[in-house]
Design a protein around this nucleic acid. Sequence first.
DNA 1: TTGAAAGCGCTAACAA
DNA 2: TTGTTAGCGCTTTCAA
Lengths: 337, 337
Amino acid sequence: MATRQVTVKDIARRLRLHYTTVSKALRDHPDISSATKQRVLALAEELDYHPNSIAKSLKNQSTCTLGVIVPTIKNDFFSAVISGAEEVAYDREFNTVVCQSNESAEREAVALRTLISNRVAGVLISVAQTTTSGSGFRALQRQGIPLVFFDRVCDDIEADRVVVDDVGGARRVVEHLIERGYRTIAHAAGPPNTSIGRDRCRGYLDALRAHGLDGDEKWIVHGGFEEADGTAALGAFRSRGPMPDAIFAVNDPVARGIHAEIKRSGLTIPRDVAVAGFGDNRLSAYLDPPLTTVSQSPYEIGKIAAAMLLRRIDEPSHQCLCETEVIPTQLIVRKST
Amino acid sequence: MATRQVTVKDIARRLRLHYTTVSKALRDHPDISSATKQRVLALAEELDYHPNSIAKSLKNQSTCTLGVIVPTIKNDFFSAVISGAEEVAYDREFNTVVCQSNESAEREAVALRTLISNRVAGVLISVAQTTTSGSGFRALQRQGIPLVFFDRVCDDIEADRVVVDDVGGARRVVEHLIERGYRTIAHAAGPPNTSIGRDRCRGYLDALRAHGLDGDEKWIVHGGFEEADGTAALGAFRSRGPMPDAIFAVNDPVARGIHAEIKRSGLTIPRDVAVAGFGDNRLSAYLDPPLTTVSQSPYEIGKIAAAMLLRRIDEPSHQCLCETEVIPTQLIVRKST
DNA sequence: TTGAAAGCGCTAACAA
DNA sequence: TTGTTAGCGCTTTCAA
C-alpha cells in the first residue's frame, strides 16, 4: 500500500520491452503484434495499471473535462441541469467538474480561474446573482476555452446560450391571471442585473400592456431569488396600500415566501390574493394550495447545453456565429390562482 | 483567440530570463529579487498567464482534487452533503469532482476508474444500491488513494466512515410510534444489501422488541429507495391482510409513496394509518399531513467527511486505524403520526 | 541572484 | 514489429 502507482515503464521493464511499445500495445495500436499486446494487457491487469490521464492531458494539450459553474447545487433546477449535462458528457467519455458560486461573483471568478488552470475543454455556466461584468468570462474565451451560458446568461459577451423562454413564460402566466379575472397584478421581480430577472419582468409588463392594464411601478418590487425575498416583497406591497389581487413571483422560492406570508397573515389563497411562480420546483406541487407556475425542462436544458458545448469543442473553427437555443416553457395551472 | 496558452517560457523569453527563474518568481520564491518578481508578475498579468495545474500535478505526483461519488445529485440529501464537502475542500483550495452512479454498480466502477486515472487525492463515496462487493474500492486503496464512505457504506472493507445513527434514529421514531399507541407497526424496508437498509430495519426491530411487540415478518417488505417502492410496499401490506396501524419507511421518498397511496385509497393519515419516514427531505414538511421523520444533518456530514478525507491525505502514514464517525439524528414529529 | 539539467508519464514521429 | 528521441509545462536540485 501507498506504493508508487504503476506506469508503462514498470510494465515494460518486467516484459523487457520498450515503454513506448507498451504504450502502443495498451492503446491497441496496429503496429504491435497481438502476442505482445496480450502479454502487455495481461501484465497491466495483474499489476493493476491505471493510465495516468494527467500525463496524457499534458501531452495532448487537452483534457476530456467539462466545467460547470452553478450558483448552488442545492436546487432542483440546477441539479437537474447538471444531471442532464453529465449524462451527455458521460456518453462522450467526458468528465464533469461542478463548482458552486454561492451567488458570489468573487467565488465565481475563483472557479473560473481554477477551471482555466485545469485546462477544462469547455465550461457551462449559469451566472451568479452578484455578477455584473462579463470580463471574467472573456478570460476563458481568450484561452480558447468555449463557453455556454444556460438559464442566467451574461449579455455583454458573445457566447452560446441555452435559455428558457423567460419572456414568453412570464407573459403566459400573467395572461392566465388576467383571464382568471385578476386585475391588479403585482410582480415580485428578481435582481434587475440578471437576465432572467429582466426577462420575466418584461413578460409581465408585456402581458399587462397587451390587455390594456397599465403596469404601475408601485406593483413591482425587486429582490433576490430566495424565499426570504418573497417575504420581504410581500411586506413592501403591504406598505404601498391595499393588497393586489394577484402576485407573480420571479421564481418558485420567492413565490413560496409570499405564499407562506399570505397564509400567515390570515388571508386565503387564491380568494384574497392569487400567487404564481416560475420554475416548477419539486416542492411547488405540494404547497397548500399548490402553486401555479411555469415549467422549464432543466434536464433537457442540461443535455442541450452540454451537446452544444461538445460541438464547440469538436470544431473550434467557426467560433464566431453564436447560437442561442430557447427552450419553450409550459404553464402549470394549480390551485393557487 | 484560440492562440496557444501562455507558459512560463513565454514570459521568460520576453523578459530575457530563464524560465525556471520565472517559475520561481511566480511562486514568490525567496531566491528571486523583488525587482525581478515584479517584472514577472506584471508581465504574467499582462499576458493573461494561468498556471497549468496539469503540469504541476504531473510533476508533483499529486492533485488537489477530491472525487465524490453519489447515487444522484437530484436529491436533497446528497446535494447538501456535496455542498458541505465542497465548502471544506474549497477552504483548503481543493477542487471537487462529482460523479453520479445512478444507483448502478457498473457506472460506479467506471467513475472509480476515472477518478483513479485522474489521480484524485481522495474519494468520498456513498455506494450505489446495486453494489454488492467492495472490490472496486479496494482498487482505490491499492493505489494509495484514501477513501471515506458516507451514509451508505460498504462493510467488507476497511475505511473511514461517516454515517448517521441509523439504528438509533430508526429505533427512536418507532418508539415514538409505540408511545403514540400504535401497535401493529409495519416497515417498508430498504434493500437488504445496503447498510442503511439493514441498520434502519434493525432499529425498527430493536424498538419493537424493547416494548414487547414481536416483529412479525409479514410486516416487513423490502424494496428500493424511491417513491415507487413505497407505492409497491403499500400494495404488499394490503395483500397480507388488514392494514397495519402505522408504517415506518426506510426513507422519505418511500414514505411519500406510501403517504400518497394511502390518501388515494381514501384512508386518513394518521387516523387510519400513521406514516413516518427517515431523512427529513425538504418536501416532507409540505405534505398534507406533514411527515414525521428523522433528520440527519447532510451538510454537516459532508463537512465532516471531507475533513476526515483531507486529514488522511495530509498524513497518509497511519493508514490502518480507521475511524467511524456517527452523526446523531433528530426526531422530527409532525402530523402524520 | 540567476541559470542549467533532469524528470514527472505519456504519445507522436521517426529510425532500426 | 519494436525501439529511439523529443517534448507537453512545471518544479527541484544543483551549478554558476
